[in-house]
Design a binder for these strands. Sequence first.
DNA 1: CCGCCGATCTTT
DNA 2: AAGATCGGCGGG
Length: 204
Amino acid sequence: MRATGRSKRLPRAFYARQPEALAPELLNKLIVHGGRVGRIVEVEAYGGRVADPASHTFRGLTARTTAMFGPPGHLYVYFSYGMHWCANVVCGDDGEGAAVLLRALSPVAGLEEMRTARPAARKDTDLLRGPGNLTRALGITKEHYGADLVTANLGIELRDDSAAPSEIIAGPRVGITKAVDLPWRFFISNNPSVSRPPKAAPRP
DNA sequence: CCGCCGATCTTT
DNA sequence: AAGATCGGCGGG
């Protein structure tokens, strides 16, 4: 990617830690699929050693969660509300059932393709805003279930271009009804692609 | 800007 | 029956 300078693919060991520890480290990294590139600006941690009733892996192994229970550095893709695909980066140890949900990215390259895939987006900062929207813009579906981000076997990879650090905000996860108090959502402050910015303070 | 609601279908 | 969502619509 010329526009973003040199970048490196991350090794397997990068993913082998608890989701709440990996999640903030994923911010500002690049997701690449063909010519389409986005910078991660919002994520959520699920599962791992801390009991997490909101995680798809909480009740044990099922057909759907095989990838999430697999080795770190792969993609766990699931179908949401009958119409959206959501993508997670599997982490922790093999067999643990931990992952980080990608909730929003800021567009870096391949904007034309993204606009075609996301006709409902009114502005470019909306192209990858929201977990269902970012997979649509990037062209990620069930065929990428289990994709290896380290070998890029299915054309998807995660890269680090050493972007300048940003202010990170942690808070409760979005759209869940269990374990609502765990502060496992991490996002970059003031980024227009973040799916649900903090509510404005009430007027005095 | 905010809240409500329907769409759509897999998983449990 | 619920769900790790989204976008259109109506109201303030």
